[in-house]
Design a binder for these strands. Structure first.
Lengths: 391, 391
DNA sequence: TGACTTTGCTCATGCTGTAGACTAATTTCG
DNA sequence: CGAAATTAGTCTACAGCATGAGCAAAGTCA
């Protein structure tokens, strides 16, 4: 039996079952395509006749198309159903050092990807808008359902306007509104960690409910918390600031005014500072080059990254103790050296820890993770739940 | 428009709207009784005719009864609807030092309450079962929908069997099964913090979604996390162990094997240890007597409780930073001296904190909080969602 | 070729909420 | 006092939806 909660305040109409089932079928197609109507009926528990009607709707709404005919050991051949590859979503990943724009289908498959070549001096929202318009023009045959934007730092509660993103080198005020106005598309914006958490829901392989925490290790540390399969936003959208929990009362000064926040001990920036303080040379090195130095055998770089790994593990221990998520997913440059530092991070996380069941892993598809996360923002916004506004 | 999530895996039938709406109406009656059908229609957004049909069902299922006639400035008088006071729930609060048993109606109103007088020497599940049977016999005219049990310590993931409750002075293994077998009733069991969190959902006044954290300060410290109005259980039901997050690497040894866990610095037991170490006399004092001593002006007791308050605030700061809940609710003996130590706790919580919006407050109805929490466990289990098994 | 299997569609049925009409009850105003 | 207005609660025709049995289509296998 379904379970209902007193927090549910919306009444249901006689069309509610169709909405629920339509969504269920669409998600099954998304995750298991190609798939026949009969298999959809078996998987969903609905009658074949009901599935046929719903599929008819989905085809009319151009969300799903009939594909090739399948083959079975016995009986009539099934007609496979697939997502309509004409429908697409734009994904914009704003990173302190680079901006990436991609085109994805509704299944999260990245079709085209482009590193925006915007000169340091002329970084602006306008340049991004121009690039978006060009990409849309290049994919005239596609019908776009929205633009997902993921960026470092925090977005405001309603995700509408200003953003606090001190590491971005261009003004991002009202980036959402300007893109929406210029393109006429739905724009969904959130920080990287939240977006990656949603990507696990929409594209991840695990079934059922998800309890997981995504930790984005970048200039700072941000986390996205998925509770019962839904994003935990908290008051004013400020949930997930584990990066600003104090781990060390005498630690370095943090931008937030405290001393010894987790991100002053385990972020990329923390590592660079520690490297400089340990006598590493020359100054002005980036985190990726720090990884290269370690790979090449630089002892100070190695010691720095080990220091960072231990501190990462300490903070993760706090998370697994406090929330006991099924999984903790790490996103960020440090994952490119996971083979080397992952075990050290995990060892520290499990040290003396009450909960040792949380699985720790780097995000799948390193480079694509943030782009798929941006796509997930659009899907999660309910863009496909309405009976198709676009032809 | 409703929003659906890909984590929803259950299909809907044509009876689903009725289930949803029936639940909605029942909850409105629970929270706003006495209330007329017309008001239910206005509040729920359903048609008056639909509400009438649903109410007819609820009356047939003996969940709701018609009450007195109301009075309005104009027009026909409404018929008020109320919860059927014949339906009841048993609430069992197992505390280290005492066991309380109560009878509640479905609205969470405690009808009868009894401190079980079980001699220290003969504390056993059997004695509790006997007491339960007697109370059921004393309320023969009531129809019981279940028994909610809240206790310190952890219950296992599926809430079925063994419990880790080192502070309880009698064996609690399979308490659930034994009570269920002896009474034939549905038994729902969970730890105090989780139960109190659910009580906020079922009996709290705030509307809409709830993001809150309940902190139970007792022998140890346990927390219940409510995310999007649902309990965050985490892997193996171990979520909420903020009490075992390390705040002080050189702190006292904790039962979990770590040093300086939050609960070694801010629990009742921590206060008692600190009191003894500060030269407080005599040994063997209880926490409530420590509060009395402070009230009477004992300087060591005062200093101890101030030390505890500061440490409580430190841990709460971690919670508000990490989760940014709308509210943080404190449960435990310390709330009886909230007028004195609450401000100190809150001041420390907000010190240098990123998120200063979380509201901090003690649980309402101090003494009744845990009993209503036990009732909430039964309601949350869906006991009323089936078309009434009991006559 | 004929028995069997599987897919996908058709259709009668029952459950549900909707919207408006209708009855009942009560106050206000002429 | 009586008509109009107002509000509560019920009744009825209707449309959306899932169900499940039945059926044709399309294949396999003996």
């Amino acid at each position: 039996m379904r379970q209902y909660f007193p927090t549910e305040r919306q009444s249901a109409s006689n069309r509610t079952p169709r909405q629920i089932n339509r969504n269920l079928i669409l998600n099954l197609v998304r995750k298991q395509q190609p798939i026949s109507r009969a298999d959809l009926a078996r998987t969903s528990g609905l009658q074949r006749s009901t599935v046929s009607l719903i599929v008819e709707d989905l085809i009319a709404d151009k969300l799903v198309v009939e594909g090739p005919t399948g083959r079975l050991p016995r009986g009539r051949r099934p007609t496979f159903l697939q997502l309509n590859s004409q429908r697409a979503v734009l994904a914009l990943d704003i990173h302190p050092e680079q901006v990436t724009l991609a085109v994805s289908d509704l299944g999260g498959k990245i079709i085209a990807q482009k590193l925006l070549d915007i000169p340091e001096s002329s970084r602006s929202v306008g340049a991004i808008v121009t690039a978006i318009k060009r990409v849309i023009a290049e994919h005239k045959q596609k019908s776009f359902d929205g633009i997902g934007v993921c960026l470092p730092g925090r977005t405001d509660p309603i995700l509408e306007q200003a953003i606090f993103a001190p590491n971005l080198h261009f003004p991002v005020r009202d980036i959402r509104g300007r893109i929406a106005k210029a393109t006429g598309l739905r724009v969904e914006m959130d920080n990287v960690a939240n977006a990656c958490a949603l990507a696990e829901v929409w594209f991840g392989e695990s079934d059922g409910m998800h309890d997981l925490v995504v930790v984005n290790v970048s200039e700072g540390i941000g986390t996205g918390i998925l509770a019962n399969g839904r994003l935990l936003r908290g008051d004013s959208g400020m949930a997930g600031e584990f990066g600003h929990v104090q781990l060390d009362r005498d630690g370095p000064l943090c931008g937030c005014g405290n001393h010894g926040c987790w991100e002053t001990l385990a972020s990329n920036r923390a590592a660079l500072r520690h490297y400089a303080e340990s006598g590493g040379s020359p100054n002005g090195v980036s985190f990726t080059s720090l990884l290269s130095l370690a790979h090449a055998g630089d002892p100070i770089a190695i010691a720095t990254l080990e220091w960072m790994s231990t501190n990462l593990g300490r903070g993760l221990r706090m998370i697994t103790t406090a929330l006991a998520p099924k999984e903790i997913v790490i996103v960020g440059d440090v994952t490119t050296a996971w083979y080397r530092f992952g075990p050290m991070i995990e060892e520290e996380m499990r040290r003396n820890s009450l909960n040792t069941n949380s699985i720790l892993r780097p995000a799948y598809d390193g480079g694509l993770a943030r782009l798929r996360a941006a796509v997930a923002l659009v899907l999660n916004s309910g863009a496909l739940q309405e009976p198709a506004s676009v032809a």
